[in-house]
Amino acid sequence: MNQPIIKICDTTFSYDQKPVLHSISMDVQPGEFVGVIGPNGSGKSTILKLLGGVLSAGPGNLLFKGVDYLNQNRKHLARSITWVPQEHSMAFPFKVSEIVLMGRHPYLSAFTFEGEEDIEIAHSAMERTQTLQFAQRGFNEISGGEKQRVVIAGAIAQEPEVMILDEPTSALDIKYQIQILNILKQLNENKNMTVVLAMHDLHLASKFCRRLVLLNEGEVFQDGAPEEVLQKDHIEKVYDIRIHLVRNQDGSVMISPDTLCIQ
C-alpha cells in the first residue's frame, strides 16, 4: 500500500468540553473516493473540518503525506487540500466569477490581482461545473444547486489534490445531487483527485463511493467497501431504526423503513 495522502491518528475532539470525536483513526489513500456517513451529530462535519484543515485538534493528529498539517504553511496546504462547506451564505454581493477566482488565493502573493492564467483556470473550472452561463450574476441571486456548483468550481480552481466536501448534496433535489456527484466522480477519475465527502443518502453513497466510513457517536463504527459497511444490522444499530435493505445488481443498496414508527 502507498503512503496515505491524509492520515488522522487517534484524534479526540471536543467543542467547549462537549466531546464530538473519540480517538478516531483513518487513512485516505491517493485517488480514493470516500463517503463519510452516519446519523446527525455523529461527528461527520467535525471530522471533515479536521481533514480539511479548518479545525485543529493539536499537533500530531493530522498528516498530509506524512507531514503534520500544523507544520505546513497555510497557503501551501491550501494548494493540496480544499474544504467545501455545507451552506453558503454570502454577506456581500460577490459575483459568481469573483467567488471562483478566490480559489486562486493560495497561488497569489499579497496585493496582486488575478492574472491571465488564473482567469483561464477559473474559466475551465466553471466549464467543468457548467456554471459559466451565470458567471457574471450575483452569487446571492442563484439557486442552491447552482451555488453548490459555483463553490465546487472555486475549489477546482484551487487545483488541490484532495477535496473535502461537507454534505454537498443534502440541500439539493435529486437532479442536482446526481449532477454534483457526477462532477466529483469525473474529477476523481480524470484528474485523480482524492475526494472525501459526507452524505446522508445511503443509496447514493453506495452508488458513488468506493469506500464508506460509518460514524456512530464520534467513533468509526465501520470502514470499508459499501457492501461491507451497508449491512442491515449495522444500519439498524447506528440509526436506531428497523429497515428493509435491497441490494441492487451494481452493488448499491436501497433502504426503506420497516414500519413508519421509529423504534
Partner: peptide, 19 residues
Amino acid sequence: GRDLNLISTGVHSAMSRGV
C-alpha cells in the same frame, strides 16, 4: 485586501483557501 475578501465569505472557507 484579498485575504479580507475571503474572510468576508466565511472564516472556514477562507482558511481552506490558505488565509
